[in-house]
Amino acid sequence: MKHPENEQWMSFLYGELAPSARREADRHLRECPECRQRVEQWRATMGLLDADHATLALPARRERTWFAVPAVRWALAASVVLFAGFAAGRVTGVSREEVARQIAAARAEIATDLRQRHEDDLKAMAAATVAATTEQNRQFLAEFGRQFNAARSEERRDWIAALDALNRQHSDDLAEVKSGLNALARKTGAGFQQAESQLNLLASYLPAGTDAGGALDSSLSKEKP
Protein backbone atom coordinates (compact mmCIF):
# COMPACT_ATOMS: atom_id res chain seq x y z
CA MET A 1 0.00 0.00 0.00
CA LYS A 2 1.31 3.44 -0.92
CA HIS A 3 1.02 5.79 2.07
CA PRO A 4 0.47 9.52 1.58
CA GLU A 5 3.42 11.67 2.55
CA ASN A 6 3.42 13.45 5.90
CA GLU A 7 3.24 16.74 3.98
CA GLN A 8 0.04 15.58 2.38
CA TRP A 9 -1.43 14.69 5.75
CA MET A 10 -0.75 18.26 6.87
CA SER A 11 -2.81 19.58 3.96
CA PHE A 12 -5.44 17.01 4.87
CA LEU A 13 -5.54 18.00 8.54
CA TYR A 14 -5.73 21.71 7.78
CA GLY A 15 -8.41 21.30 5.14
CA GLU A 16 -6.25 22.34 2.20
CA LEU A 17 -6.77 19.23 0.05
CA ALA A 18 -8.95 19.31 -3.02
CA PRO A 19 -12.16 17.29 -2.57
CA SER A 20 -10.97 14.35 -4.67
CA ALA A 21 -7.64 14.12 -2.86
CA ARG A 22 -9.45 14.38 0.43
CA ARG A 23 -11.76 11.51 -0.40
CA GLU A 24 -8.75 9.42 -1.33
CA ALA A 25 -7.01 10.27 1.94
CA ASP A 26 -10.17 9.39 3.87
CA ARG A 27 -10.31 6.04 2.12
CA HIS A 28 -6.68 5.38 2.91
CA LEU A 29 -7.24 6.22 6.56
CA ARG A 30 -10.02 3.67 6.80
CA GLU A 31 -7.78 0.97 5.40
CA CYS A 32 -4.45 1.82 7.03
CA PRO A 33 -4.18 1.58 10.85
CA GLU A 34 -0.62 2.85 10.70
CA CYS A 35 -1.55 6.15 9.05
CA ARG A 36 -4.70 6.37 11.14
CA GLN A 37 -2.67 6.25 14.33
CA ARG A 38 -0.30 8.92 13.10
CA VAL A 39 -3.09 11.23 11.98
CA GLU A 40 -4.95 10.70 15.26
CA GLN A 41 -1.85 11.70 17.16
CA TRP A 42 -1.45 14.89 15.15
CA ARG A 43 -5.11 15.62 15.62
CA ALA A 44 -4.80 15.21 19.38
CA THR A 45 -1.90 17.66 19.46
CA MET A 46 -3.85 20.10 17.32
CA GLY A 47 -6.71 19.78 19.79
CA LEU A 48 -4.38 20.66 22.65
CA LEU A 49 -3.08 23.67 20.75
CA ASP A 50 -6.67 24.89 20.53
CA ALA A 51 -6.62 25.45 24.28
CA ASP A 52 -4.69 28.64 23.57
CA HIS A 53 -7.05 29.82 20.85
CA ALA A 54 -9.50 31.88 22.85
CA THR A 55 -7.28 32.68 25.78
CA LEU A 56 -4.72 34.99 24.27
CA ALA A 57 -6.65 38.16 25.00
CA LEU A 58 -4.52 41.08 24.03
CA PRO A 59 -4.92 44.54 25.47
CA ALA A 60 -8.25 45.34 23.93
CA ARG A 61 -9.38 48.85 23.20
CA ARG A 62 -12.95 47.75 22.84
CA GLU A 63 -15.45 45.23 23.96
CA ARG A 64 -15.60 42.24 21.71
CA THR A 65 -19.29 41.70 21.69
CA TRP A 66 -19.10 39.83 18.41
CA PHE A 67 -17.61 36.83 20.10
CA ALA A 68 -20.72 35.67 21.87
CA VAL A 69 -22.92 35.12 18.88
CA PRO A 70 -20.52 33.08 16.74
CA ALA A 71 -19.69 31.00 19.80
CA VAL A 72 -23.31 30.07 20.04
CA ARG A 73 -23.52 29.43 16.33
CA TRP A 74 -20.36 27.37 16.56
CA ALA A 75 -21.86 25.15 19.21
CA LEU A 76 -25.10 24.85 17.28
CA ALA A 77 -23.41 24.01 14.01
CA ALA A 78 -21.09 21.55 15.69
CA SER A 79 -23.97 19.76 17.34
CA VAL A 80 -25.89 19.61 14.08
CA VAL A 81 -22.90 18.17 12.26
CA LEU A 82 -22.24 15.76 15.09
CA PHE A 83 -25.79 14.54 15.04
CA ALA A 84 -25.79 14.24 11.27
CA GLY A 85 -22.52 12.36 11.43
CA PHE A 86 -23.87 10.11 14.14
CA ALA A 87 -27.05 9.39 12.22
CA ALA A 88 -25.19 8.84 8.98
CA GLY A 89 -22.69 6.65 10.76
CA ARG A 90 -25.46 4.43 12.05
CA VAL A 91 -27.10 4.06 8.68
CA THR A 92 -24.17 3.88 6.30
CA GLY A 93 -21.22 3.12 8.51
CA VAL A 94 -19.43 6.40 7.79
CA SER A 95 -16.14 6.49 9.68
CA ARG A 96 -15.22 8.72 12.59
CA GLU A 97 -12.78 10.41 10.28
CA GLU A 98 -15.59 11.44 7.99
CA VAL A 99 -17.46 12.95 10.92
CA ALA A 100 -14.29 14.68 12.08
CA ARG A 101 -13.75 16.01 8.59
CA GLN A 102 -17.27 17.39 8.49
CA ILE A 103 -16.70 19.04 11.83
CA ALA A 104 -13.46 20.54 10.52
CA ALA A 105 -15.31 21.86 7.48
CA ALA A 106 -18.02 23.37 9.67
CA ARG A 107 -15.34 24.86 11.84
CA ALA A 108 -13.61 26.48 8.89
CA GLU A 109 -16.92 27.90 7.75
CA ILE A 110 -17.61 29.32 11.17
CA ALA A 111 -14.12 30.78 11.39
CA THR A 112 -14.87 32.66 8.19
CA ASP A 113 -18.16 33.75 9.68
CA LEU A 114 -16.38 34.91 12.80
CA ARG A 115 -13.92 36.91 10.78
CA GLN A 116 -16.76 38.43 8.80
CA ARG A 117 -18.51 39.42 12.00
CA HIS A 118 -15.34 40.99 13.29
CA GLU A 119 -15.10 42.97 10.09
CA ASP A 120 -18.72 44.04 10.34
CA ASP A 121 -18.05 45.05 13.89
CA LEU A 122 -15.05 47.16 12.86
CA LYS A 123 -17.08 48.67 10.08
CA ALA A 124 -19.89 49.66 12.41
CA MET A 125 -17.40 51.01 14.89
CA ALA A 126 -15.66 53.11 12.24
CA ALA A 127 -18.97 54.51 11.05
CA ALA A 128 -20.07 55.27 14.61
CA THR A 129 -16.79 57.00 15.37
CA VAL A 130 -17.00 59.15 12.27
CA ALA A 131 -20.61 60.06 13.00
CA ALA A 132 -19.87 60.85 16.63
CA THR A 133 -16.85 62.97 15.73
CA THR A 134 -18.75 64.89 13.09
CA GLU A 135 -21.65 65.55 15.43
CA GLN A 136 -19.28 66.58 18.19
CA ASN A 137 -17.42 68.98 15.91
CA ARG A 138 -20.66 70.49 14.67
CA GLN A 139 -21.92 71.05 18.18
CA PHE A 140 -18.62 72.48 19.25
CA LEU A 141 -18.54 74.95 16.37
CA ALA A 142 -22.13 76.05 16.98
CA GLU A 143 -21.46 76.56 20.66
CA PHE A 144 -18.29 78.46 19.90
CA GLY A 145 -20.12 80.77 17.48
CA ARG A 146 -22.87 81.45 20.00
CA GLN A 147 -20.43 82.23 22.73
CA PHE A 148 -18.33 84.44 20.51
CA ASN A 149 -21.33 86.59 19.51
CA ALA A 150 -22.66 86.73 23.01
CA ALA A 151 -19.27 87.70 24.30
CA ARG A 152 -19.11 90.77 22.06
CA SER A 153 -22.39 92.32 23.19
CA GLU A 154 -22.09 91.21 26.74
CA GLU A 155 -18.55 92.29 27.16
CA ARG A 156 -19.35 95.80 28.42
CA ARG A 157 -22.23 94.67 30.56
CA ASP A 158 -20.06 91.99 32.05
CA TRP A 159 -17.36 94.47 32.88
CA ILE A 160 -19.75 96.79 34.66
CA ALA A 161 -21.40 93.95 36.49
CA ALA A 162 -18.00 92.61 37.48
CA LEU A 163 -16.92 96.01 38.79
CA ASP A 164 -20.19 96.39 40.69
CA ALA A 165 -19.79 93.00 42.18
CA LEU A 166 -16.23 93.82 43.15
CA ASN A 167 -17.37 97.04 44.77
CA ARG A 168 -20.15 95.33 46.66
CA GLN A 169 -17.78 92.67 47.78
CA HIS A 170 -15.36 95.31 48.98
CA SER A 171 -17.95 97.12 51.14
CA ASP A 172 -19.31 93.81 52.37
CA ASP A 173 -15.84 92.84 53.40
CA LEU A 174 -15.39 96.15 55.20
CA ALA A 175 -18.68 95.76 57.04
CA GLU A 176 -17.72 92.25 58.03
CA VAL A 177 -14.36 93.32 59.35
CA LYS A 178 -16.01 96.11 61.31
CA SER A 179 -18.62 93.88 62.92
CA GLY A 180 -15.89 91.40 63.64
CA LEU A 181 -13.90 94.01 65.48
CA ASN A 182 -16.96 95.08 67.46
CA ALA A 183 -17.64 91.52 68.48
CA LEU A 184 -14.05 91.07 69.47
CA ALA A 185 -14.19 94.23 71.56
CA ARG A 186 -17.38 93.07 73.25
CA LYS A 187 -15.89 89.69 73.94
CA THR A 188 -12.72 91.23 75.30
CA GLY A 189 -14.71 93.45 77.67
CA ALA A 190 -16.77 90.48 78.81
CA GLY A 191 -13.59 88.45 79.19
CA PHE A 192 -12.05 91.05 81.45
CA GLN A 193 -15.13 91.17 83.61
CA GLN A 194 -15.26 87.38 83.83
CA ALA A 195 -11.59 87.15 84.75
CA GLU A 196 -12.04 89.77 87.40
CA SER A 197 -15.01 88.03 89.03
CA GLN A 198 -13.16 84.71 88.93
CA LEU A 199 -10.17 86.28 90.66
CA ASN A 200 -12.51 87.68 93.24
CA LEU A 201 -14.08 84.28 93.79
CA LEU A 202 -10.64 82.71 94.11
CA ALA A 203 -9.58 85.35 96.56
CA SER A 204 -12.59 84.61 98.71
CA TYR A 205 -11.34 81.05 99.21
CA LEU A 206 -7.89 82.10 100.33
CA PRO A 207 -7.24 82.33 104.04
CA ALA A 208 -6.77 85.91 105.12
CA GLY A 209 -3.22 87.11 105.49
CA THR A 210 -1.51 84.77 102.99
CA ASP A 211 1.04 86.46 100.84
CA ALA A 212 -0.50 85.49 97.58
CA GLY A 213 -3.99 86.63 98.44
CA GLY A 214 -2.92 89.43 100.70
CA ALA A 215 -3.51 92.44 98.55
CA LEU A 216 -6.69 91.21 97.11
CA ASP A 217 -7.86 89.95 100.42
CA SER A 218 -7.31 93.25 102.04
CA SER A 219 -8.97 95.13 99.25
CA LEU A 220 -11.93 92.78 99.27
CA SER A 221 -12.19 92.30 103.01
CA LYS A 222 -13.74 95.68 103.34
CA GLU A 223 -16.80 94.46 101.50
CA LYS A 224 -17.03 91.33 103.61
CA PRO A 225 -18.99 91.36 106.76
Binding site: A54, T55, A57, L58, P59, F67, A68, V69
Partner: peptide
Protein backbone atom coordinates in the same frame (compact mmCIF):
# COMPACT_ATOMS: atom_id res chain seq x y z
CA UNK B 1 -2.53 42.99 29.02
CA UNK B 2 -2.44 39.48 30.35
CA UNK B 3 -6.09 39.39 31.12
CA UNK B 4 -7.74 36.29 29.93
CA UNK B 5 -11.34 36.25 28.96
CA UNK B 6 -13.84 33.76 27.76
CA UNK B 7 -16.54 36.13 26.65
CA UNK B 8 -19.87 34.46 26.30
Amino acid sequence: GGAVQFPG
